[in-house]
């Protein structure tokens, strides 16, 4: 299985931010996205996750293969750790949340309400959600925010075993996770505002 991206342009607020992206991510591999703040990494991930339409280009993706991890974890404060995870497991049609709890060292917290967790613990719970989706391709947006050194280690281990088990991950991050991964710097693909015709939007085209 592979995720292929050909000539992809993505837009935020109607303006192109990245243009002409082409890459392939096959199972068993990790691709790290790099680029300064505001360079369009989040927009790219959201487009790949299907949350917004691409401006141009093609995304080749096996059906039901993506698990998207956003900035926000989507946790419900009044539900316990186990309840939060069980909900997502049932949405994705899986049942077993134990491996996910174990992987992110959450077993001791399983009956704690999510609002009583620290920021880092919440983040670990948000990442544990990826494991219960059973999806092969992880699209992760700054997954290590508010994680301490040990938790970053846990996360890196989780990604390693996921990839070893036939998964793949596309991770936008600024820190070195110590993973054997290829790196894609999005900076060269930034849309040039002075050459708006490279991927014209319908609106620009109408005026020029």
């Amino acid at each position: 299985m592979e995720l292929t991206v050909e000539g992809l342009s993505v837009a935020r607020g109607g303006m192109p931010v990245l243009e002409g992206l082409t890459f392939t991510l096959t199972t068993g591999n990790i691709l790290i996205l790099r680029g300064p703040n505001g360079s369009g990494k989040t927009t790219l991930l959201r487009t790949l996750a299907g949350l917004q339409p691409p401006l141009a280009g093609r995304i080749g993706l096996p059906p039901e293969a993506i698990a998207y991890g956003a900035h926000a974890d989507g946790l419900k404060a009044t539900l316990s750790v186990a309840e939060n995870l069980t909900f997502w497991a049932r949405v994705y049609g899986t049942t077993d949340i134990e491996p996910a709890l174990a992987q992110f060292n959450l077993k001791g917290l399983r009956n704690r309400a999510a609002h009583s967790l620290s920021a880092g613990q919440k983040r670990r719970l948000g990442l544990a959600r990826l494991l219960v989706t059973g999806r092969r391709f992880w699209l992760l947006d700054e997954p290590t925010v508010s994680l301490d050194q040990a938790s970053v280690g846990l996360f890196a281990d989780a990604v390693r075993s996921h990839v070893a088990g036939g998964g793949a991950a596309l991770i936008a991050t600024h820190i070195d996770l110590g993973l054997a991964a290829e790196t894609l710097d999005v900076a060269p693909f930034r849309a040039d505002p002075d050459r708006p015709t490279r991927t014209p939007t319908a609106f620009d085209e109408a005026f020029t």
Binding site: A49, Y68, G74, L75, K76, A77, V91, Y92, R129, T133
Partner: peptide, 16 residues
């Protein structure tokens, strides 16, 4: 509430 805590994004990418 689902919009604010990000669940709505995640639901939109879920098989539902």
């Amino acid at each position: 509430l689902d919009f604010e805590d990000g669940s709505l994004d995640l639901l939109a990418t879920a098989p539902l």
